[in-house]
Amino acid sequence: MDDITRGLAQALELILSGDAALFEIVLLSLQVTGAALALAMLAGIPLGAALGLGRMRAQGLVTIFLYTGMGLPPVVVGLFVYLMLSRSGPFGSLAWLFTPSAMIVAQVIIAFPVVAGLTMTAVQAVDPQLRLQARALGATRIQEMWTVLQEARIGVVAATVAAFGAIISEVGAVMLVGGNIEGKTRVLTTAIVLNTRTGDFALALALGMILLTLTFLINGAMLQLQRVRDG
C-alpha cells in the first residue's frame, strides 16, 4: 500500500518538476512507437484492405500468417531481430543493434499483423454493394478502395489503437534489441523493468502510471478521429 501511494506521489512530482530524464524517456517511447506504428499502418492498412476486398492471391495463406503473427510472443520477435541485426548476423553492417532503429524494426514486426489483420476484418464487414455503388458513381479503383476504407474507419482506428497498445506496453523485444541504454534506448517499459529489478518500486509504479496516462490520452485522441465528420 505504501508503495502505491508513494508511487502516485512520485509520478505527480516527476511530471510537475519537468524531470529532464523522464522527458527524454517519454519522448523516445513516443518516437519509437510512433514511427513503428506509422510504418505498420503504411504497410498494414493497404494489405488489410486488399485482403478484405478479396484482391489477393493466396488469401487464405496470408491470413493464416497474419493471425499467427498476432499471436507471436514479442520476445521471440526481439530475438529474431537481434540475430538479424547482430554484427555476426546478416544485417550487422547497418549497426542498428542497441539503437532506436532496432526497436522500431521489432515493434513494426509486432504491430504489422495486428494492423493488417484487424483492417482486413473491418473491411470485410463493409457492405459489398458499396463498392459497386462507388464505381457506379465514377470512382476509380483507388477511390473505390479508399471509400471502403473510410467506411471501415471505426475498425481501422480500432486496429491502430490495438497495435499501439501492443507496442507501447511491450518490453521483451525492445529490451533485447535496444539494450535499455540510458539516454539512448531507454523507454518507459524498460525503465520500469530496471526500477523493479533494483527494488525502486515507487519509481517503477510512477513510470507505469505515466505510461498509462499517456496511452489513455493517445487512445482518446485516436478514437476522436472516429467521430469526425464533415458538416
Binding site: 457506379a136 471509400t147 464533415d230
Partner: peptide
C-alpha cells in the same frame, strides 16, 4: 463518369446526408 446507377437498395456512406449527396462530386 457520364453514367450512374441508382440501385434498388440505397447504399449510403456512414456520414451525413450532405456528404452523401456530395460524394460523386467529391470523386
Amino acid at each position: 463518369r457520364e453514367i450512374t446507377t441508382v440501385f434498388q437498395r440505397p447504399v449510403l456512406l456512414n456520414a451525413n446526408v450532405r456528404a452523401n449527396v456530395a460524394f460523386g462530386l467529391q470523386l
